[in-house]
Amino acid sequence: MGRAVAVVHLRSEVSDARHARVLETLTGLLPRVGVEGRGVFACDLRGTERLLGSPERVGARIVAVLERVRIPVAVGIAERPFAARVLAERAPVGEVSRLRPGEERMFLSRLPVGVLPLEEELREELGLLGIRTVGEFADLERGAVLDRFGRAAAAAHALARGEDAGEVRGAAPRRRIVAKRSWDAPIDRTDQLLFALRAALDDLGTELRMDGLAAMRLEARLEREDAAVLRLERLVLPPTAEPAALLRSLRWALEERPGREGLGLVTGVRIEATEVELVRGRQIGLFAADAAREEEAIAVARYLRSRLGPGAVLRPRVTDPESRVAEREVEWEEAVS
């Protein structure tokens, strides 16, 4: 089998949960799956024929598996992701459509130029020039398109001519990074709880470091014997995998929780890093010991602004030190907007 890409187009409502579910299902079925857009997934089928059968069979299997969990999709198969995507968008729900090698350019050429990723203004300009279909646009000279309309148009022109690289960029679904702890004896004091949370955060830090990640948002759910689950959410700035810094962040969350009602009897905790960032490129502290802390200072400014209101956290700037009018010497601006 030559090159074949199956694009799965999710129909009906595209929620985060459904998007994640489809991605998880596809990565379980196929070796290389990329996300083309919200609810649109490209699967590279090269080398799968011997194990999984023909591309149509793979497409049918995808539709069947997702039908079982009541997620309606349509599948388009072509040599390149763009043509497969356009085909999938036009295919009826639950069907698998395929373009045979060599049919792509013909298929695309009849479609309106609007299927290409072009800006509205450019589309209108092409219309004024009498270019209304992908085929007419593809017939333009490559160099002329680049000179006159720029790079974005040249990239769309390559798609129209079937000259794009057409590779599927694999994206594995994000692993959930969670740490859990439960205690036989309930904890009712904040300082004891913080001490106990350290062990869970050590685990979370290890998990994050294994994937080269830093936590940017934490969610902690405290199970309580005598009350409902207490949910705490923290934005961690700068993102970090350091358990001590994560603990500090949770300490803040505990101290700043609305109403500051009693802690209750805490019997367990589940902490998840709900947003993460790659650690790579964040080693600024190696070169400027304290410059890396500026992000944290800004996070404090944001917090203080939320507590004290606008106009409370300011940064002064000397505009005209020689001015005779005192008001013109200095300007005060909000440290965070």
Partner: peptide, 27 residues
């Protein structure tokens, strides 16, 4: 001046909040 934040804390409580926040962070 680009690396100074000035907090106009107008009450005793606001002073405590601002000073506490500054000391607890590593910023």
């Amino acid at each position: 001046l680009a690396r100074v934040l000035v907090v106009r804390a107008r009450t005793n409580e606001a002073v405590l909040v601002a000073a506490g926040a500054g000391l607890r962070s590593e910023g």
